[in-house]
Design a protein around this nucleic acid. Sequence first.
DNA 1: TGCTGTGAATCGATTCACAGCG
DNA 2: CGCTGTGAATCGATTCACAGCA
Lengths: 210, 210
Amino acid sequence: MPIEIPAVVIDRLPTYARALTFLEDQGRDVVSSQELGTILGVTPAQIRKDLSYFGRFGKQGRGYNVRRLALELRQILGLDRQWSMILIGVGHLGQAILTYDGFQPQGFIIVDAFDVNEGVVGSKVGGVNVHAVSELREYLQKRQVDIGIVAVPADEAAPIIADLIAGGVRSILNYAPTSVPVPERVQIKNIDPVLALQSMTFYLKNGGVE
Amino acid sequence: MPIEIPAVVIDRLPTYARALTFLEDQGRDVVSSQELGTILGVTPAQIRKDLSYFGRFGKQGRGYNVRRLALELRQILGLDRQWSMILIGVGHLGQAILTYDGFQPQGFIIVDAFDVNEGVVGSKVGGVNVHAVSELREYLQKRQVDIGIVAVPADEAAPIIADLIAGGVRSILNYAPTSVPVPERVQIKNIDPVLALQSMTFYLKNGGVE
DNA sequence: TGCTGTGAATCGATTCACAGCG
DNA sequence: CGCTGTGAATCGATTCACAGCA
């Protein structure tokens, strides 16, 4: 077995990659785990340990070459290529996602969108064609899609996600406010601002007067 | 010391509360940790352990009273009241946040918004007045705000967050694609879809052919 | 009997601390 | 000398397993 890399480590790598890109833009060419940790609010030991799962990228006594480490991380994560995505749900939220300009520059391309609403089907939003959801299954048989973005109401999410998985989609970004359990081979990440707010209020309510 | 409750537990409670609300709407009046676990994709033991930090809400041999447990959790989390929020950054993303209809029904009210752009300052978006960011510090001296939502470009996030903290805001929902370390007494949650995508690609790239 | 609540056991992640190299 | 890379130690979270109650 080639040593199992903890998922928490994988989740941190993109933040490292981002900080390194920032340092690159600043023209910095060396950085220590100490300094990187300060930028990100993480301990230096954790950064070193995380990186050690993938290789030995540093120079003792100096630190890490910024450009080199940035390149390595991008390659490890697959950020050196483009990924195709489809969006399901072209309501308010879906339209915001289609016109969001943060995906494309990072190599994440929304190639098609789907909705149940006849009013929007056949139109173009943010340069992307909107198809009928009824065509989703058939579509997935013809085209290979890397990532599905789900932006439908909570009660419609489960069947859509089932369709995506049946169609061979292995990564899902779920904006619907509901937890949908998926098979182990499928990745799902939930974007749920209300959930984030609802746990912060616990600390607002308590922790106040100490 | 009154036993420290792990943050991971607090993070899970809102999902439990949501599932219970769903069951309430279905007219269900009893649920076991087993069934709740199946709905949420979590082990029954974890649910029981999590709840045990706060009290003994179940009946042996039966399970939990849905209405009762829902009420308890809402009270524990402070979901039985309203929370005031301000938004900083009224660009594309900020406007989507202002017109998002998922916050208000859960008791999260955006009371004011701020932006640097003269073009939008003075206008109303989604029923919310947009003020100049230069007035933010002064505003926070007069008004008590529970939560700050940050939707500015990455390079402007740190100073805005510093202003919020200086103004007494203790919880921040950060949509800016950057990690900003904050003092321990301040809660910050990042909403970062690109980061989520960038860790999923690791598994797309590998794990494919096994 | 069927389930909760919970100590004990396990599992996993973080931090420590230092040998070793540039 | 300063910093990395990494086993060992610690810390924390999850799961087990069962006593006890309805």
